[in-house]
Design a protein around this nucleic acid. Sequence first.
DNA 1: TAAAATATTTAGGTATACCTTAATTATAGC
DNA 2: GCTATAATTAAGGTATACCTAAATATTTTA
Lengths: 224, 224
Amino acid sequence: MTEQAATPATEEYLAVIYRLSRQAEPVPLALLAEQLGISPISANEMVRKLARAEMVTYRPYEGVTLTEAGRQRAEVMVRRHRLWERLLTDVLGLPWDAVHAEAGRLEHATSDLLERHLAQYLEQPSTCPHGNPIPGQPQRLEGARALSSLATGERGRVLAVVNEDAALLRALGQAGLVPGAELEVVAAEPALGSLAVRVGDRHVALALAAAAQIMVGAPEGQGS
Amino acid sequence: MTEQAATPATEEYLAVIYRLSRQAEPVPLALLAEQLGISPISANEMVRKLARAEMVTYRPYEGVTLTEAGRQRAEVMVRRHRLWERLLTDVLGLPWDAVHAEAGRLEHATSDLLERHLAQYLEQPSTCPHGNPIPGQPQRLEGARALSSLATGERGRVLAVVNEDAALLRALGQAGLVPGAELEVVAAEPALGSLAVRVGDRHVALALAAAAQIMVGAPEGQGS
DNA sequence: TAAAATATTTAGGTATACCTTAATTATAGC
DNA sequence: GCTATAATTAAGGTATACCTAAATATTTTA
């Protein structure tokens, strides 16, 4: 019913490092500072504090890596975050591009007891509404590739949107690029930094930077 | 989607002052400090800061009163608090003596958008699980009396438990003294500081201090 | 390899919200 | 009316988590 861990700020750092670790390991300080919306100097201070507490290891000019203790704490926060996202969309009906910010606040106000009841009510979901895995549940992703790495003619199914930026999510939702959507790459133009895909009978053009945030698996009937 | 107001600490003070105002007006500083679990000196500091912000008026040696602006802000917080209590008990199934503490954290992490969706999903409830009114919804209490003021032989129906202390709520729940329960005062002993009531076919003895926290209305079929 | 561009660290500062100790009130009992 | 009790204020301190400016490293690149 209580929180064993440090402060909301500490929790937030660990959670963000955890998420960014999937894209870059170790996580560069500049990226971390940008994601948290604070100055690199402040990020540096906090990271050194976290290193002293043995939640992360920090190598200057390289980046930050979670220790085992840090990873465990981060997973608790990410789990709570994504459970809230599920409740907010599936039960309370908030739009999928709004729930990341909401859950970002609620996760720090969530006790063990509440987490258990949330997970039970939602029937132990394995992903958030954006398709990202909920730690502590059995996972079956793997074999996922970034949409930006597909060649012309390749087909796939959207598994997750890694970056939960609201503007990006809103646009993807309108384009039908949501978890479960079947797609085919119509034209990949790495040199032009752009990609055209067909989603159902709709055609969508998107920047490679955006496509890099979308994880794709095998199309239906070809499960890995 | 955003919070216009100050800090969580400020919100917490206003909400507690709002709740205590029902029992004592103006609210004595000592009571406020005790409820918040902080020293009277710190409470004094914060109250003077709130007075400077024109959220309360403070008369030394008397107590604190909310201004119109303070009352409005407090009602938002109390509304969010009690909406969460409803969701936590009715939907997620947490015990009624645990939800006050949980909601006390969640209320500060709740946006306007989320509040609207909560209220809509819960179908605009008018009371929290303990029977206390949710501001912003049509109310129909009035005419309620403290159980401690009833004489031997008087009957009534529990409307609300004003004090949401977990230990008290747990005991009342076991005794069946929950909102809606019909009761009869079997023996009122003001001089002994105790009261005996019948709830259904159970008999319960409780201290006057506890009985003072229970609001009672007319028994069934005698609606005011 | 040296200069330019980046990153990091040091130093000093801010605001919030607590705290304790000590001095100064005011209220209430006698 | 005076004194004991209690409440209030003043003064100074702590921790957190930010900030900017300036100094110092380290990479990168030309």
